[in-house]
């Protein structure tokens, strides 16, 4: 929370990026406390590691300090506060953390926990769910990453090369 406020108040973008990395690392620690080791692992490596490096790379392309905004921050502030209040109001209905009667523990979770070892044979249930039961979702996620990579290569990667290479033409044809 303190770090989030510091990120908002900071004008120096370099320090902001560093604080964002620290924020991710702290969230990773929080996830470990909540026994979500896989999520924590992802947060630590992606959030604290790669994103920080990419933001620094972006900073080297743009400037290092934030410009003073030309418009009044009142309207965005009101919208954000209203949205945040609505979201927090929504959480009041949710079951308590760790409540065994919560709907999420009643639907498919017991089946995954009790039978996945017999059906898949892996001790790590998270991997079983991600790669086998939810194989379609993971395929979609990989496709999203693939699309992101192709888009970056298309937008930024081909500036130096001469036009008319057949491979680039074909990739451009897939763009919406």
């Amino acid at each position: 929370m303190v770090i989030a406020i510091a990120i908002v108040r900071m004008r120096d973008l370099f320090a902001t990026v560093m604080l964002t990395g620290i924020f991710s690392l702290l969230s990773a620690g929080l996830f470990v406390v909540w026994d979500a080791v896989d999520v924590a692992f992802t947060e630590a490596s992606v959030g604290a590691g790669i994103v920080t490096v990419l933001m620094l790379g972006t900073l080297s392309l743009t400037g290092k300090s934030e410009k003073t905004p030309a418009y009044s921050p009142t309207l965005p502030l009101v919208v954000t506060v209203l949205t945040g209040a609505a979201l927090i109001y929504g959480t009041l209905d949710m079951p308590l953390y760790g409540d065994p009667a919560a709907p999420i523990h009643q639907h498919v979770a017991p089946r995954y926990l009790n039978e996945s070892y017999g059906e898949i044979g892996l001790p790590n249930v998270v991997t079983s769910v991600l790669a086998s039961y939810r194989g379609y979702d993971t395929l979609g996620e990989v496709t999203v990453i693939f699309t992101a990579g192709i888009s970056v290569l298309l937008l930024l990667g081909t500036t130096r090369r001469t036009k008319g290479k057949s491979k680039d033409d074909r990739e451009e044809g897939e763009k919406p």
Partner: peptide
């Protein structure tokens, strides 16, 4: 990743 935390993404 099959036995402990981790997997392809990480």
């Amino acid at each position: 990743g099959d036995y402990g935390p981790g997997g392809g993404f990480q």
